[in-house]
Design a protein around this nucleic acid. Sequence first.
DNA 1: GTTTTTTGTGTCATATTTACACACCTGCAA
DNA 2: TTGCAGGTGTGTAAATATGACACAAAAAAC
Lengths: 241, 241
Amino acid sequence: MAKKGQYTYEYPHPAVTADCVVFGYDGKELKVLLIRRGLEKEASTTAYVGEWALPGGFLDVEKDRTVAHTAARELKEETGLKLSYKEFKEVGTYSDIKRDPRERVITVAHYALVKLSEVQADTDAEKAEWFAFGDVPSLAFDHDKILRDAFSRLKQNIHFEPVGFELLPEVFTLPQLQNLYESILEVKFDRRNFANKMKHYEILSEVDDGTPRHGTRTPIKYRFDKENYDRLKRSGFQLEF
Amino acid sequence: MAKKGQYTYEYPHPAVTADCVVFGYDGKELKVLLIRRGLEKEASTTAYVGEWALPGGFLDVEKDRTVAHTAARELKEETGLKLSYKEFKEVGTYSDIKRDPRERVITVAHYALVKLSEVQADTDAEKAEWFAFGDVPSLAFDHDKILRDAFSRLKQNIHFEPVGFELLPEVFTLPQLQNLYESILEVKFDRRNFANKMKHYEILSEVDDGTPRHGTRTPIKYRFDKENYDRLKRSGFQLEF
DNA sequence: GTTTTTTGTGTCATATTTACACACCTGCAA
DNA sequence: TTGCAGGTGTGTAAATATGACACAAAAAAC
């Protein structure tokens, strides 16, 4: 451990942290991964002990290539979840002079989307917990605002990025996809119109898993067609819903 | 001046700066305000001396309430332009470990929109210069990328915010507005369709400045109708172009 | 076994978007 | 003075996209 007061500067420097809003989807609701503060190893963590908070932590000035790397490293340390730094999309910087009672701390908030079914096993239940987005308790620091902002950002980005496909399993059904869109955009769509429009983009391909579809009650399974999506994206478009 | 090495921390802290991309519009082209590095007072400014760069500077840990305040303060110091911190929209955080050769510096980039005709007189020509967006020289640090990203952000935000009206004079003409939209979105519109659509939003009000309009050659002057715009915004909409 | 829920599908009316032409005045030049 | 090029205003018709809507079949619930 470093000796106290080892790092000196001519002018005061703020501490910098990266926080992560990790969204998942269980087929019904949008979920968020939270940690309980003060249960970790870090000695400097003395504020908001016991409260729920977003995973995140201090930038390692010498090792973290970018704050996205900080986000990835801290997320793994605090929740067990291993994500690449590339999966973090920046939400914004929170720099209010009083946002941390201990010292001046500026945080760069990120969000990431995960396939809940594939990562739920990796999350360290001792430290972290998945909350339904609607049931999130009040959080430490300004994390309530960060969470709201991250959700808004997700809501905006759904028009430009295939966020639905990052949250759903590889293979999914149209009703699942529609449900997810409705959860994020907080609206309801007509089933037929949604299907028509989605099919019109030609970014879904049917998956034949051998299961015979006797009636219409068993939904058709689809997979995201990344090639067509990329082609569409290159030609400049927008997913309108 | 502070004594060297006065500020000590248990762990290394990065320096934090705020940079500003200030966009203006002269009726023909989008413009950007740049400064030449090394001509200022700051002693620590030893990198990229003589090169063009975005205005910006170090967060004052004790005084700047947020990084937007830093941006506003530094912009005034470096270019003479007085903007409120509220006018800065965040573009993103640039934190690459090698982005500043001197020490680890993380910057939060912002953009702001100004009415060129109203502020050109305020800009300190000794230090700062307006460049056509297309003719910007290569910049210090990673400011080239920041500038590109700020422009992309502006391009996106034009769909959600009345950016045109922040860049044009109070009173403007439809061709001017169209030209601005075309500059930002990098497309061409049909004059009639543009006028129809814009009128349909009912956010323009004709200005009668007494000048008799003999023919159609003298364009009609408009003013931005903020009330109607706000009403429209509250009802959830999007400026589609 | 009966009822309820879920899913798939297509058409028609309406709204939106796009394409497109002409008349008028200004400013400039012959 | 005349003529011409350039910039501006305006409306309509065709194509496209959107939004509303109903029924049949099987699964799931009771």
